[in-house]
């Protein structure tokens, strides 16, 4: 359980990057936080595991306040964080060693580190690369290692801070597939910070951030119905929604609430057959 109460944050240099945000995220949720570049979404991410501390308000993880110095390690163990640049979060020169980095810091006994590393690598499908050098891997593979590094700490919450932004479409799909599986099978709460609307489709809840404040917090279905509002804050709707809207305005077909290509084509077929 992650909860933000009236959280504001400003960097020394300027105005508030996060403004009076209140938010509750329950166990096992799958959430997307979307916003344009500079909307404050990455700052928000860093507030979730105490990398940044709120200028005012409180952030609590399972009741632990991130501003409590004594609990900070416990909080970071609970809230795993994967960042944007795959290169800048791998610490050591061998994949296995890197995945072990978190548990080593936590002082986990050696035997258990070994089992944790093995199962974490398996969970992201990278067990074959255990002895590889990280710099020889693709971007998507590096991000999978970064996720494994978090999993080895056995977190309850996984935050992906634009973890797919620097990947190619294949790498992006791999990562989304993996976190979805972790959410479904292991019940890990996933908070995906992203600017790709397509990635938000499968989430239970989409939070739209603009100018440091929450402007929408709803199901993807409801959020994507507000296409004009999204576009006005530098965002977009998924391609299926865009096409759906266009077909509706031109009076060609009404595809209802279709958000994915499958839903869209099924609805289209139905509506064409009706005629």
């Amino acid at each position: 359980m992650l909860s933000l109460k009236n959280v504001s944050f400003s960097y020394e240099s300027g105005s508030d990057a996060v403004k009076n945000v209140s938010l509750e995220i329950g166990d096992g949720e799958f959430i997307a936080i979307v916003g344009h570049n500079g909307s404050g979404k990455s700052t928000l991410a860093k507030l979730l595991n105490g990398l940044l501390l709120p200028t005012s308000g409180t952030v609590t993880v399972n009741g632990m306040d991130t501003s409590d110095d004594d609990r900070i390690l416990d909080i970071r163990r609970h809230v795993g964080m994967v960042f944007q640049n795959p290169d800048n979060q791998i610490v050591t020169t061998v994949v296995r060693e890197d995945v072990a980095f978190g548990p080593e810091n936590l002082g986990i006994p050696t035997d258990e580190i070994v089992t944790r590393v093995d199962s974490a690598l398996k969970a992201v499908g990278m067990e074959k690369y255990a002895e590889s050098a990280p710099h020889m891997l693709s971007g998507g593979q590096k991000q999978r290692i970064a996720i494994a590094g978090m999993l080895a700490m056995e977190p309850e919450i996984l935050v992906l801070d634009e973890a797919t932004a620097m990947l190619d479409p294949i790498g992006r799909k791999e990562i989304i597939g993996i976190v979805r599986k972790l959410n479904e099978e292991k019940g890990i709460t996933v908070i995906m910070i992203t600017q790709y609307m397509e990635e938000a489709i499968g989430c239970e809840r989409v939070i739209v951030i603009n100018d440091g404040s929450i402007v929408m917090d709803d199901t993807p279905l409801a959020v994507f119905k507000r296409g004009d509002e999204l576009r006005s804050i530098g965002l977009d709707v998924p391609a299926a929604v865009e096409l759906r809207e266009m077909l509706k305005t031109r009076g060609i077909a009404d595809c209802g609430d279709a958000m994915t290509i499958e839903e869209l084509t099924d609805k289209l077929c139905l509506s064409l057959l009706k005629n």
Binding site: H36, N37, Q195, G234, D236
Partner: peptide, 8 residues
Amino acid sequence: MAGLDPSG
């Protein structure tokens, strides 16, 4: 366009 948001 790598890493840019939709408006970017």
